[in-house]
């Protein structure tokens, strides 16, 4: 098994999990899905620079083997922005929940919602 295979399969798995979770009906699942998709996309962008072990992009004279610095720089800011986005979405989810009393993404509780789902008066 190669490192490339491990990374590629992990990217695929995380993407699949992200897609599935963002399609769920509860806001918290959507938040988790977005977090998953962020991991997957960041790892994917990173993998575009190809994998290399023990060759960080720290410049020194005579070094010829080095990791591609450009995807790394792009992914670094992407990680921070993903955080900003996840934070905004989770707060949006919280506010919607407080505003509507349901954590369904469409703001309307489903017909089949179980009574134990209602919050606070268990």
């Amino acid at each position: 098994m190669s490192l490339e295979f491990l990374v590629a399969s992990a990217v695929g798995l995380m993407t699949a999990a992200g897609i599935y979770l963002t399609l769920r009906g509860r806001t918290f699942s959507v938040v988790l899905g977005i977090a998953m998709l962020s991991y997957a996309i960041n790892a994917f962008l990173f993998s575009v620079g190809r994998l290399i072990v023990n060759a960080p992009p720290i410049y020194a004279k005579g070094v010829t083997e080095y990791a591609d610095p450009l995807p790394q720089a792009l992914v670094l800011t992407a990680i921070v922005i993903s955080f900003g986005m996840t934070a905004l979405v989770v707060v949006l989810a919280l506010r919607t929940y407080l505003e509507t009393g349901t954590d369904h993404v469409n703001g309307t509780p489903d017909a089949g919602e179980t009574p134990s789902d209602s919050e606070g008066d268990v």
Partner: peptide, 24 residues
């Protein structure tokens, strides 16, 4: 949704694999 997710994930994973096994 699961079928869609598997197709999407498989596609992205394969793309990543196809990229990494090529010369940059």
């Amino acid at each position: 949704d699961a079928v869609l997710a598997v197709i999407g994930g498989g596609g992205v994973g394969w793309l990543s694999w196809a990229v990494m096994t090529r010369q940059p």
